[in-house]
């Protein structure tokens, strides 16, 4: 019997991996580590699943980069292999896998749904709906579709379930809000105020709008995320901190620094447009209601085209 080579030894190789292929020794090691045979998966299916998971995001690299064997091994080591094979076994209809899935994830799924919706009835409904989808009751073009097929093991299966629940809930909420009757929407809105001529000249206001847009475009992704989550979504510092994986105080400091930097950049931009110092200060003292600036649009204008996939089915 040939000695078993470990993933670590395989990962030492700096050789570029073959296009659309994974090293056989690495696959052997992963096959043994995943215990996929216990869920009724065959080796060729396992290899196909791994290849699909790796190539879907190019092993975590840029699209045009060619992964080496080490990068491939590092990518696969970062996968939740156990959850991945379980999800695929469930999608394939393995009864034992389903029993295990129900035992492990059914109750946490319900609790997560209740936490997301903030209501037990809605939460149970949401969980049941997703569970029915997971079980493959939905068909597309005559083929049974299971959302578990979109799980690729980048995070935990439970995390994926929570995120999917949150997607369902947010989509439903946004859709229902969009379909809300207009009369209901306008009910709580105050009548428009009488138009008063702005004290700040229109030229300076337009320059201010332009300076703000330029300043926000110059911000990094994290700063923009902080500003959007805090000022637009009105998330708490703790919520933002949990998403970013940092301490609440760190978020507070970063937010303060980002706000100050943005203000400085706006001042700098205004000076750059030829305004005097005094004029700049007067411009910054303008009533925000006089501005025709949509910060939401501004923040969303710098969208990258990194994600071209649809949301999870």
């Amino acid at each position: 019997m040939a000695p078993v080579e470990s993933v670590a030894s395989v990962a030492e190789a700096e050789l570029p991996a073959m296009q659309g292929a994974i090293d056989g020794r690495l696959l052997n090691e992963l096959w043994r580590a995943s215990d996929a045979a216990a869920w009724g998966l065959e080796r060729k299916d396992f290899d196909r699943i791994l290849l699909e998971a790796g190539t879907a995001r190019n092993f975590g690299l840029a699209e045009d980069a060619a992964p080496t064997q080490r990068e491939q091994a590092a990518f696969f080591r970062g996968l939740c292999l156990g959850d991945l094979v379980l999800a695929r076994a469930c999608a394939a209809g393995n009864e034992r896998a389903w029993e295990h899935f129900i035992a492990q994830h059914r109750q946490p799924l319900i609790r997560a749904a209740i936490a997301i919706t903030g209501n037990e009835t809605l939460g149970r409904d949401l969980a049941d709906q997703l569970y029915a989808e997971l079980y493959g009751l939905n068909t597309r073009e005559g083929e049974r579709r299971c959302p578990l097929l979109s799980y690729r093991g980048r995070g935990s299966l439970m995390g994926w379930l929570r995120t999917t629940l949150a997607q369902r809930h947010v989509d439903h909420h946004r859709h229902s809000r969009r379909l809300k009757p207009l009369d209901d929407t306008l009910e709580g809105i105050d009548p428009p105020a009488v138009e008063i001529a702005p004290e700040t000249p229109a030229t300076e206001l337009s320059q201010l709008e332009r300076a703000i847009e330029d300043a926000l475009r110059g911000c990094g992704a994290e700063e923009r995320y902080l500003l959007a989550a805090y000022y637009l979504d009105e998330q708490t510092l703790l919520q933002i901190a949990r998403v970013l994986g940092v301490h609440e105080a760190t978020v507070s400091r970063k937010l303060k620094r980002t706000t100050e930097d943005t203000r400085k950049q706006v001042l700098k931009n205004l000076r750059h447009y030829g305004l005097s110092r005094r004029a700049v200060e007067e411009t910054l003292g303008a009533d925000p209601r006089d501005l025709d600036t949509n910060l939401k649009k501004l923040l969303q204008n710098s969208q990258t085209d990194a994600f071209k996939e649809q949301a999870a089915p």
């Binding site: 997301i116 995390g159 929570r162 995120t163 629940l165 949150a166 997607q167 809930h169 947010v170 989509d171 946004r174 992704a221 994290e222 700063e223 923009r224 995320y225 959007a228 989550a229 637009l232 979504d233 998330q235 919520q239 998403v243 939401k296 923040l299 969303q300 204008n301 710098s302 969208q303």
Partner: peptide
């Protein structure tokens, strides 16, 4: 940073 929907999803998750 630019998608309110995904921010909400991540925050809820």
């Amino acid at each position: 940073a630019v998608c309110g929907r995904c921010r909400q999803v991540v925050a809820l998750a």
